[in-house]
Each structure stands twice: as C-alpha cells, then as structure tokens.
Simulated scan of single mutants.
Amino acid sequence: MLECANGSYYTGSTINLEKRILEHQNGEGANHTKKYLPIKLVYHEVFDRIDHAFYREKQIQGWSRKKKEALINNKHNILPQLSKNHTDFKKN
C-alpha cells in the first residue's frame, strides 16, 4: 500500500515490489499515483500465489481509510470493528 503526497492510499499488487515502487515514483504507475507524487510504501504483504495477492488487493481496496490505517499500524485486533458489514452477534 502506498501513501500519496495528498495523503490518499493506493493499493496494488506486483511480482517485483522494488521495481514497481520506482515505476510509481517515476510517474509510470497508476493514474492516481501519477497525480499525487511522491509516494511512499507504508504496508506490504508477500504471497506465494499471484491470485491470492490479487484477492487481497481487491479486499483492501474496499476498506475504509480507518481500516487501512489500522492495518498499516499493525492494529489487527480492531479490524473486525472497522468492517462496514461487521455485525455484533450478542448472546441473550
């Protein structure tokens, strides 16, 4: 996940992280990052399979800013609370 100069987050996937970051910094990345340079890497995960990485990319793209920031700040325990569709099932 990249943080852009305007404070927005960009989530993508790649098979070569260092190369892709350089491409984004040089304005050769996504349209969003081109508009808001410079960018900085704030979070990443490694996957053995590209389909798993792509699934995770799409999942995170659908998250709220607060939920992305919890992930970035390693606050995994509050991620369920920040889910838009999270339902609290209380036992009677």
Score class of each variant (00 low, 15 high):
49 R>D: 13
58 K>V: 06
88 D>T: 14
64 S>L: 13
21 I>T: 04
65 R>M: 11
27 G>Q: 05
8 S>N: 06
89 F>H: 08
49 R>E: 13
43 Y>N: 02
28 E>P: 06
15 I>D: 14
37 L>E: 05
30 A>F: 04
51 D>K: 14
70 A>S: 08
37 L>K: 05
65 R>C: 09
78 I>H: 01
56 R>A: 08
32 H>T: 11
59 Q>R: 14
39 I>W: 02
25 Q>D: 04
45 E>H: 11
51 D>W: 10
89 F>T: 02
38 P>E: 05
28 E>N: 15
81 Q>N: 12
49 R>Y: 11
82 L>G: 01
68 K>G: 03
48 D>M: 12
35 K>R: 14
32 H>Q: 14
21 I>C: 05
8 S>F: 07
69 E>D: 11
43 Y>L: 07
80 P>Q: 05
41 L>P: 04
68 K>R: 08
71 L>S: 02
84 K>D: 00
86 H>F: 14
25 Q>A: 13
31 N>G: 11
73 N>W: 00
88 D>S: 15
50 I>P: 03
51 D>L: 14
8 S>K: 04
15 I>E: 06
71 L>H: 01
39 I>K: 04
83 S>Q: 07
29 G>E: 02
50 I>H: 07
73 N>E: 09
38 P>N: 07
51 D>S: 09
84 K>W: 00
15 I>L: 09
63 W>C: 06
46 V>D: 15
47 F>L: 03
67 K>G: 01
31 N>H: 13
77 N>H: 15
25 Q>F: 06
17 L>Q: 07
28 E>F: 15
34 K>V: 13
29 G>R: 05
70 A>F: 02
40 K>P: 00
24 H>K: 03
26 N>S: 14
72 I>T: 08
13 S>E: 05
26 N>V: 00
63 W>A: 02
19 K>Y: 12
30 A>Y: 02
62 G>T: 11
69 E>C: 03
49 R>H: 13
40 K>W: 04
68 K>Y: 06
82 L>Y: 04
76 H>R: 04
62 G>E: 11
50 I>D: 01
91 K>Y: 12
22 L>A: 12
60 I>G: 00
60 I>P: 03
41 L>E: 07
63 W>H: 10
83 S>V: 00
51 D>N: 13
90 K>I: 12
72 I>F: 01
43 Y>G: 01
91 K>D: 10
49 R>V: 09
36 Y>I: 06
14 T>M: 10
19 K>W: 07
41 L>F: 09
90 K>Y: 12
59 Q>N: 12
59 Q>T: 15
31 N>D: 11
89 F>R: 03
29 G>K: 02
17 L>D: 06
66 K>I: 00
54 F>H: 06
71 L>F: 03
24 H>W: 01
79 L>G: 03
90 K>N: 14
71 L>G: 01
10 Y>V: 02
55 Y>H: 02
38 P>F: 07
26 N>A: 11
82 L>M: 10
66 K>V: 07
78 I>S: 02
19 K>R: 15
88 D>A: 09
25 Q>W: 02
82 L>K: 04
40 K>M: 04
48 D>N: 15
36 Y>E: 03
52 H>Q: 13
27 G>N: 06
89 F>G: 07
34 K>L: 09
54 F>M: 08
11 T>N: 03
76 H>A: 10
64 S>E: 12
22 L>N: 10
22 L>Y: 08
80 P>E: 03
62 G>A: 08
73 N>Q: 09
84 K>R: 11
19 K>N: 14
85 N>P: 00
